[in-house]
Structures are given as C-alpha cells and as structure tokens.
Design a binder for these strands. Structure first.
Lengths: 147, 147
DNA sequence: CTAATTCCTCTAGCAACTAGAGCTTCAAGA
DNA sequence: TCTTGAAGCTCTAGTTGCTAGAGGAATTAG
C-alpha cells in the first residue's frame, strides 16, 4: 500500500507543495523514495497527515500541532497537556469572535449611515478619518486569507 | 508644528518601524528631513496616518486602505466605491465570524468530553485523528496573530 | 513508444510587519 | 561646553504558512 505524493494529497486534501513543506519543517518524516527518487507514502503517513489537516482546520497553529502529534504518540501520558492546548485554542477563537463582532457592528453602522452621495459627505470616509465617531474601541485580527 | 517619528508614533499608536514601512511601500509620502537626516512630520501626515490606523483596526487590508485614501482626496467623486469596499469588508468579517463560531463549537465539544485521564482516551487527540467524530465541516481562517 | 502527466529541487514571493546590527544625531543635565 | 543616553538612521533578515514558478526527470496511459 504505497502511494505517491499526488495520491496522498488527493486523499487528505493537503496540497502537494504543502506536504513537501511539512516534510521540510520536520512535521512529516522523510518518506522512502522510489528508484526514480519519488516519495512513497504508507498508511501511517496518511493518518498523520489527516491529523495535521484536521488540527489546522480547527485553527491550531503548526507549533501546537507539533505538540499534539508528539502527545498522540505517547498513549500512557496524562492528557492534561493536550487539554490545555485545546483550551488555549478555544480562548483564542473566542477572543477573535469578540473582536470581529465589534468590527461588524462598526462596519454596519458606517454603512447604514452612508447617504450614497459624494465622497465629501461619505460616512465611510468620515468615520475612518475620525475615530471619535466610533461607538466602540476595536482592533481587528489583522489576518485575512480564508482557508 | 513639526514632529519627529517617535512623537508621531506616540500620537497615532502606529509603531515607528511600521511608519517607515508604510513610507517604503508608498502609503505614506516621504516627509522632509532635518539637517541631520531625521524625518519631520506635519499635521497632514498625522491625519493620514490616523486614517490608515483606523482602517487597519477595522480590518481593511492595506490595498483597500490605499484606495480609500485616494478617494478621500477626491471629495467630489461619488461615494459608491468607498461604500463598496466597506461592504466587501463587512462580508469578509461575517464569513470569518461564521467560521470561527463553528470552530468554537467543535472545540467546546471536544473539551467537554475530555475525561482528564491519559492520552489513550483523550477526546482531543481522538477527535483530531478522526474527523468522522465531528459534528460540522469546519475550515478555519488560518491566520493567528491578534492585533 | 510516445506524449501527457506527475514528480523532483530550488528559489522567490505573499501580507504586514518585527527584530537586530551598527551607526549617527539630538536633547538635557552637570 | 561636554557628555551621556535616548531616539533616529539604513539595511538585512526573520516571522507564519504556505504558494508559484523555473527547469528538468520519472512515471503512466494509450
């Protein structure tokens, strides 16, 4: 049951260059190669990659994923540490939701008051130029790409 | 009313290297320099930087900020474009809130079921290893630093 | 057997900064 | 006036988590 990197990619939903990247940073082990130097993966590698993918989907940063992986290899250890990582992740997510919710309100207010005239009386531009017009203090999470 | 970069930083909440970075990418104009080659800013620069800061706090990407700035310099133009940018930003924010809310639930469920025993029966690790145990499909926004 | 696809390595780029090295200038106190 | 320490300067490189492209070798379908 040896599969190519392309196959592994299709089966896990992780893109090929990303798999190679994970190998490069030591998150995935270097797999054996074929005659012609191509990577060959086994079931264990696929499971590991699925685990990574899932953790990433849940928003865990790679460093946390690394820790979780090392724990998953030590079944006898207490699970408090894993619990703790997940708890911190939850706190992160909640913080971000709170921030984004404040942003949403501000944006809605801004848009709701826009008279659709010219820039000179545009609420959007005006509010941006003068924070005093805001209801909340706000601070975005500054990152943008969606997964 | 000429102020140093440090002063400008203190008055706007934008860090000194960030101001220089904005200059480098052409978001802020190159200011005049003192005898000894130090940047000197005026009121207009401060207002512009405040505008940028505020837009960033609301989560607008730098490219959008650039557009908004150029609009704010053309008071006679119709405001539909500014409106549109803000509307798109709002849609972005709403999407991210929806995703994060799904994640939060998943994490809560994971944590709620944790028996605090050993890794071998840790729900956190188990769920990560097997997506079928999930209630939702989820996909994070993958980015993390908070502002 | 050939042609299309997939694979390889390597470097560089993305957003939006942040950090550090190694140097110069400025402001304030003695 | 001198001095010292903070703040300024430029430049390069690093951060996170990938993604894109060049230029070539291997594999696989027909």
């Amino acid at each position: 049951m040896e599969i190519s990197i392309g196959r592994l990619s299709a089966e896990t939903g992780v893109k090929v260059p990303t798999i190679r990247y994970y190998e490069q940073i030591g998150l995935m082990a270097k797999p054996p190669r074929s005659e012609g130097n191509q990577r060959k993966y086994d079931r264990a590698a696929r499971e590991r990659l699925r685990f990574i993918r899932h953790a990433r989907d849940l928003g865990f940063p790679l460093e946390a994923v690394r820790e979780l992986l090392s724990m998953s290899g030590a079944p006898g250890d207490p699970c408090a540490a894993a619990d703790d990582i997940a708890r911190r992740q939850l706190a992160e997510v909640e913080l971000r939701i709170a921030r984004l919710t404040a942003l949403r309100e501000e944006l809605q207010r801004m848009l709701g008051q826009c008279a659709h005239g010219t820039i000179s009386d545009c609420r959007v531009i005006e509010v941006l130029g003068n924070h005093d017009l805001c209801q909340h203090t706000h601070q975005a999470d500054h990152r943008h790409d969606a997964a």
